[in-house]
Design a binder for these strands. Structure first.
Length: 200
DNA sequence: TCGTCGATCTACT
DNA sequence: GTAGATCGACGAG
């Protein structure tokens, strides 16, 4: 059920982003397992993508994780407040990454509510990349962790969405990326309440 | 060493 | 609808 190492080695990060819709993401943090299935992703297409931190083959202590062999987690802090979870793909030296923007929770909902300091289940529990990381207990301490380990991993449980149910649209929050911001690198399940707000 | 600003979310008017 | 939170990474000097 757990996705294999080779699954992440594909060079086609956009196709992988599409394929990850409907896959199950789990974390086991503080011996609590939480997770759900992915309903929204965004692809970051390596050094030619202006929206990527690694654009122009920029290698720094932070982006080094993205240059690793596919199949590890890339976690980083944004706006000084929010941590975001990405999946690194492709081979070593190819900084491809997929941002998980939203999941539909299926396991450990109580723990997620507690982490988000919410009392009732609302769609915004895991809607948006910052919220997903928070709810799953993801922090920078698991940066570069392998997705084959027991802390964070992805499973295929046979859930599948056909092309009519999945939309491909331009990305959000990357307007500084000029023409690359227009590329249809964002995928989501149409009508799913956990998909983050803009163009629902 | 310093100044700028971000792959966002929430609260408040 | 809009502003504020809040800090580390990055690039310029």
């Amino acid at each position: 059920m757990k996705l294999t190492e080779t699954y992440y080695h594909s060079d086609d990060v956009v196709a992988l982003s599409r394929d990850l819709i409907g896959k199950y993401l789990f974390t086991c943090i503080d011996s609590i397992t939480t997770g759900g299935y992915i309903v929204e992703t965004e692809a970051y297409n390596g050094i030619i993508d202006k929206a990527s931190h690694a654009f122009g083959n920029r290698q720094t202590p932070r982006t080094r994780t993205m240059f690793m062999q596919g199949g590890v987690a890339y976690v980083y802090l944004c706006y000084g407040i929010h941590e975001m979870f990405n999946i690194v793909t492709s081979g070593e030296g190819q900084p491809h990454a997929i941002l998980i923007r939203a999941i539909q929770p299926t396991q450990g909902i109580d723990a997620m509510l507690y982490r988000r300091k919410m009392s009732t289940l609302k769609p915004n529990l895991t809607s948006g990349p910052g919220s997903v990381a928070k709810a799953l207990g993801i922090s920078r301490s698991i940066n570069a962790f392998s997705l084959q380990g027991d802390t964070i991993w992805i499973e295929d449980r046979g859930l599948d969405f056909n092309d009519d149910q999945v939309a491909a649209v331009p990305r959000v929050g990357v307007s500084y990326a000029a023409e690359d911001a227009l590329l249809p690198y964002r995928f989501y399940v149409k009508g799913n309440p956990y998909v983050s707000k803009p163009n629902k």
